[in-house]
Every structure is written in structure tokens, then in C-alpha cells.
């Protein structure tokens, strides 16, 4: 079994475990490459027919290409797609000018509303350990309290494929089938399986997106990688982080606010 087969097999096992344990299960689909890979794995796990819904938290600020892709493939693959938007925050004029507040209102609160509305016990998320230092401590089955807080000090061991899948009341479980994958693994797998992705990842005029989300919070990187093969080649030699174009933006906004308050600006 090669490395990609092992990764796939482990992820399918986790997805099936989650489906076995939770009646109210959903998968978060952001339409990015990771969650689309997870969607592909879910389709494999259930032979083409995913028995639980997909949840898309729509901030209304995603790239038009992402909406087009979402609608095209949800139809093509016969997905049970639930789309949720924090309409109240949008009606109050929440825009990406206030990036920190915007993310909280449209993503976090949007997700809370969806969980309350549909009563999900568990959610499948396509996060990976190599994305950010803080995710290195995550587990495959990771409980959240009602405030979405994650308790680092309650990290159960996950040995021999035994997962702590029971949670206290008022919590939901986040299940991370791609936790053990790296960014490169994802691309090698996309290549092998020929998984469709949005064109935003492919270079046009010397730029491409390495990580996608809301338009105002994503910056393209300098790149001439216009095919999946070229992206893999690029990743084999890069030393910058995948989310540099996203996380830094929010941290810069925080810094600017802080410096303003202190009178430096």
C-alpha cells in the first residue's frame, strides 16, 4: 500500500466511524481543496452516495468561482447541500472592513446558528495538522463546548484507532478525517484521483491562490504553476507557509487596531 492509499484508508475509516456513532452528522464544505478532497473521500466511503448533509457556511464574500463550483458539483454529485448565512449580521451591514469581527459574525456565529437549527451532534472538517502550529495539538475526534471552545487540557490519546467519540451534553464533536494529511499529500491525491478543484488555485498572469476563502481576506501568491503537476513541483521547493496570505492579513488588522488605539498612527 503506498502512502496515498494509507492516508485514504485512514480517512475513510474515520468518516465511517463518525457516521456509525452520530445520527446527526454533517460535513462542512468550504469548497476549498481540502474540504473538496474530504468530500471525495466521503463519496468513496459510501460508494458515491453520502448519507449525511453537507453544510456550506456562506459569508457572501466568497469568490464567485467558488459559488459556481459549489452549485455545479452539488448538482452533479447529488449532494444534500445545506447553505446557511448569518442574515442578521449581513443585514446589519457586517462587512469585511472589520476583518476580525466579520469572521466571528459570519463564520463562527453562522456555524453556531446552523448547529442550533439542525441539531448536529458532529461535524466533519477538513483541517490538517500542518496548517498551523495550534492545529498540531488537535485530535481526530475533538469535542467543543457550547461556546465552541476547545480545551487543550482535555486531549484524549487516540491509540490503535480507538477514538473518544462521546461528548458531554451541550457540546458537538468535530471530526477531522484529514488531520494526518499535508498540503503536498492533498495535491498528490488530487492529481492521482483527478479531483476537480476551482481554477483559483491555478496560476493566471503570474499569480495564484494557495488558500482560498473570502475575497477580501485572501491574497494571491506569485506563481507560474498553472497545472496540478506544477503546483506539486512548486510546493516541493517552497519554504513559505500555506496560509501566509490569509492569517497574516488578519494579524495585520489586529496590529493596526492596536497601534491606532495606542496613538502610534
Amino acid at each position: 500500500m503506498d502512502r496515498l492509499d494509507e492516508l485514504e484508508s485512514q480517512s475513510v475509516y474515520i468518516i465511517r466511524e463518525a457516521y456509525y456513532h452520530y445520527k446527526k452528522l454533517a460535513m462542512l464544505w468550504s469548497v476549498g481543496k481540502d474540504s473538496t478532497t474530504m468530500l471525495w473521500l466521503c463519496r468513496k466511503a459510501f460508494f458515491g452516495e453520502i448519507p449525511f448533509p453537507l453544510l456550506h457556511i456562506d459569508t457572501s464574500y466568497k469568490f464567485p468561482e467558488m459559488y459556481k463550483f459549489r452549485d455545479e458539483y452539488s448538482k452533479k454529485w447529488g449532494l444534500k447541500l445545506l447553505i446557511t448565512r448569518n442574515e442578521e449580521a449581513l443585514a446589519k451591514g457586517m462587512t469585511c472592513e472589520k476583518k476580525l469581527e466579520c469572521c466571528t459574525a459570519l463564520k463562527t456565529e453562522g456555524l453556531k446558528q446552523a448547529i442550533a437549527k439542525y441539531g448536529f451532534e458532529a461535524l466533519l472538517l477538513g483541517i490538517r495538522r500542518d496548517e498551523h502550529g495550534i492545529r498540531a495539538k488537535e485530535r481526530y475526534f475533538s469535542p467543543r463546548d457550547e461556546q465552541f471552545k476547545w480545551n487543550y487540557q482535555d486531549q484524549p490519546p487516540e491509540l490503535w484507532d480507538q477514538y473518544k467519540n462521546q461528548a458531554e451534553e451541550k457540546t458537538h464533536i468535530r471530526v477531522h478525517p484529514l488531520l494526518h494529511w499535508t498540503e503536498k499529500d492533498i495535491w498528490y491525491y488530487i492529481k492521482r484521483e483527478n479531483i476537480p478543484i476551482t481554477d483559483l488555485y491555478l496560476a493566471k498572469d503570474g499569480k495564484r491562490y494557495r488558500s482560498i476563502g473570502c475575497v477580501p481576506c485572501c491574497s494571491p501568491i506569485e506563481s507560474n504553476a498553472s497545472t496540478v503537476d506544477e503546483i506539486i513541483e512548486e510546493l516541493e521547493s517552497t519554504t513559505t507557509s500555506e496560509r501566509a496570505g490569509r492569517a497574516q492579513d488578519k494579524e495585520d488588522t489586529y496590529t493596526m487596531q492596536k497601534l491606532r488605539a495606542l496613538g502610534y498612527m
Binding site: 502550529g133 495550534i134 488578519k250 494579524e251 489586529y254 496590529t255 492596536k258
Partner: peptide
Amino acid sequence: FLSPSLEK
């Protein structure tokens, strides 16, 4: 003081 969060 310019650290965005305790985790980071």
C-alpha cells in the same frame, strides 16, 4: 503586546 492571541 502585539501578539494576536495567547495560543500564538
